[in-house]
Nucleic acid binder design. Structure first.
Lengths: 252, 252
DNA sequence: AACGGTGTATCATATTATGATATCCTGAAC
DNA sequence: GTTCAGGATATCATAATATGATACACCGTT
């Protein structure tokens, strides 16, 4: 191939297609037939058939013998295990998260900043809550979470402003804050206080309080506590949770 | 291609090579240079270079700018998230695991049987423990775990015997039981009692107690409690943990 | 300064992955 | 019971890709 259509010989396009198949599954697509999978992955039907069959034979996708629909297999969890071993910050954080959850008796999570989102790498639920709030790997816009805002609060003002202007937002509840100036104000407030609070952003009646982890270079993680807005008010949070949260976040 | 070397047109070999690269990472290989990665994946150096570069561009591998070594990226967690949404049993189990952990105040896990191993799909640590015991995705031989034995206890005697004969074992501690007849005896005992106990198998001083989940067809999951062998004896376990464990396991 | 090992860049081409298409199967509608 | 539409499976000819080999650059060690 010549000119601008020259082949990129350091990129394996078949692998990219393959990963689009795996990435097609998620909260809203838990099992898919071939046609749906092709559509969700944006691929040709024949390619999807080959790729799905390949992943099935490799053990990454299960195929229902009756309905012929595909869904992720347990090997997906092994990939996550590899990540959890490779991230020194997650390894260092886990015992501290366990201690914190024991101490305050509420749900504790570890959020990592990844581009303009946060992704939960550890979830220590204290009591029953929505399933989405108990499993790792969930991604949410940084601007809409107390963790994202806490992490950004360690950036300088110019960069905070730029991030708030450019990064995406998403409404999860009627209470999700979509007002960018207000979000910037909350981030600046977090820079003052050392923690950030978000109410009803991802779940109704859920209050998230986060403190950024200061460790090695640009902050990319925060510890978050999650409590019920029905049983906690701001004063009580500041008194009973914030000191321990900040202590833990600063102990790295 | 003709004859027995005929191309398998439903299998994408490049994708298989790609997944070997991702699967090269794990507890003992948290970050790898190209040469190490090629060796671990059993691939040619050039192929490894292309595949690693591809995964890096797709966001699945991070590359250290200084050392040029690769390691898994956060997107691995998103793949796990997809699995956790797609497994109805894990979704159904989570609130029950949270309740059980609250009730007994000890670590609670959900183990899934996958071929001849168990893989942890949910981990609810109660107190500080080894990192390996707090993260999902870890795989262990079914025969060496209380969960594997509990699940097998629901199979008929003939199949139990066959599994104990054929499935692999692995020693983790000096206390890991490697005696197949003895393991079969413990599985039969679990069939009588409805739960299985394993001491010092994966970790020293750790006692695992598991009850199989009876739900839809062949049993493939168990709920496990993990306690310290230093503070619990068998009588106390039977009195204070087993009833709640079995109640939870039977509530599906 | 020399050398070995690792990572990067490039090459010619064999082989693979491709999109198109034919065929089969199944559930729904009539 | 028959027909039909849609989804899944199987197969094809070939364009394009992924390949292993190899040259080169760089860096740490001796």
């Amino acid at each position: 191939m010549a000119g601008e259509d020259r082949q990129d010989t350091l990129f394996v396009a078949s692998v990219e297609k393959g990963m689009r198949v795996l990435a097609a599954f998620g909260e809203e697509r838990t099992e898919l037939g071939l046609r749906e999978l092709a559509e969700a992955a944006g691929l040709d039907k024949s390619a999807t058939q080959r790729l799905a069959n390949t992943f099935h034979r490799l053990g990454y996708l299960d195929k229902d013998a009756v309905t012929r629909r595909y869904r992720p297999a347990v090997k997906f969890l092994e990939l996550a295990n590899a990540y959890l071993w490779s991230d020194g910050l997650v390894r260092a954080a886990m015992p501290k998260l366990i201690d914190l959850r024991q101490k305050i008796g509420e749900t504790v999570n570890l959020a990592l900043l990844d581009q303009d989102s946060i992704v939960y790498a550890a979830r220590l639920p204290s009591a029953r809550t929505a399933y989405a709030a108990t499993i790792i790997g969930r991604r949410a816009p940084a601007l809409n979470t107390s963790s994202g805002r806490a992490i950004l609060s360690l950036r300088d003002e110019e960069e905070r402003r730029r991030c708030v202007e450019e990064w995406p937002m998403r409404r999860y509840t009627p209470g999700t804050l979509m007002d960018r100036p207000k979000i910037l104000e909350l981030i600046n407030e977090a820079a003052e206080n050392g923690y950030s609070v978000a109410s009803n952003e991802l779940l109704m009646n859920e209050v998230g309080i986060s403190a950024p982890i200061r460790r090695e270079g640009t902050a990319r993680a925060a510890i978050q506590c999650s409590v019920s807005g029905l049983t906690w008010d701001r004063a009580r949070l500041v008194k009973e949770i914030v000191p321990y949260l900040i202590d833990t976040a600063h102990s790295f």
